[in-house]
Amino acid sequence: DEETLERIAKELKEKGWTLIVNGKLITDAREALKWLLEEEERR
């Protein structure tokens, strides 16, 4: 759910983690959240 996604995005940002999505590096939590939401919609 959205709360979980926001928590994940926040944790990613705090830890300075990066996500690699389709070979693209995502360092911004907002971008990561946007991607996660798009993935949820596809299901």
Rank of each mutant, 00 (worst) to 15 (best):
E2I: 12
E3F: 14
E6L: 13
T4D: 07
R7I: 05
R7C: 14
T18Q: 08
R7W: 13
D28A: 13
A29R: 02
R30W: 14
I8D: 00
K13Q: 12
G23E: 03
R7V: 03
L37D: 00
A32W: 14
E14H: 05
R42Y: 04
L5N: 02
R30Q: 08
L33W: 11
L19S: 01
A29K: 02
I20T: 04
A9G: 03
V21C: 15
T4V: 10
E38C: 15
W17E: 00
W17S: 00
V21G: 03
L19T: 02
G23W: 15
R30V: 12
I8A: 04
A29W: 14
G16M: 11
N22I: 15
E40C: 15
I26R: 01
A32K: 02
G23N: 04
E38Q: 09
E6I: 12
A32P: 00
E39K: 08
E6H: 11
K24E: 05
N22S: 07
T27P: 03
G23A: 07
E39I: 13
E31V: 09
A9I: 15
L25G: 02
E40Q: 10
K13C: 15
G16Q: 07
R43L: 09
G23H: 02
A29L: 13
E2G: 08
K34Q: 09
G16L: 14
K10P: 01
I20R: 00
K13E: 13
K24V: 12
L33V: 05
L33F: 08
L19Q: 01
L5C: 14
T4F: 13
W35K: 01
L36V: 03
R43Y: 09
L12S: 01
L25S: 03
A29H: 03
L12W: 13
E14S: 06
L37M: 07
E31C: 08
K13T: 11
L5V: 05
E6R: 13
I26H: 01
W35A: 02
E3K: 09
K13I: 12
E3I: 14
E6S: 08
W35G: 00
I20D: 02
E38N: 06
T4Q: 07
L12K: 01
I8K: 01
E14P: 02
L36M: 07
D28K: 09
W35V: 02
T18W: 12
V21L: 11
I20E: 02
L19M: 05
K10Q: 10
D28Y: 08
R43C: 08
L12Y: 05
R42W: 07
K10R: 11
L12I: 10
E39L: 13
K24H: 09
N22Q: 04
K10H: 08
L5S: 02
K34H: 03
I8Q: 02
W35F: 06
I8N: 01
T27N: 08
E39H: 10
W35P: 00
E39A: 09
T27L: 10
E11K: 14
E38P: 02
E39P: 05
N22E: 06
I20C: 15
A32L: 14
E40D: 07
L33G: 00
R42T: 05
K34V: 06
W35S: 01
L37F: 07
K13L: 14
K13M: 14
L19P: 01
T27S: 05
K15Y: 12
A9F: 15
I26Y: 07
E3C: 15
L36T: 00
K24N: 05
T18H: 05
W17D: 00
A29N: 02
K24S: 06
T4S: 06
A32Q: 03
L19N: 00
T18G: 05
G16V: 12
D28S: 08
K24T: 07
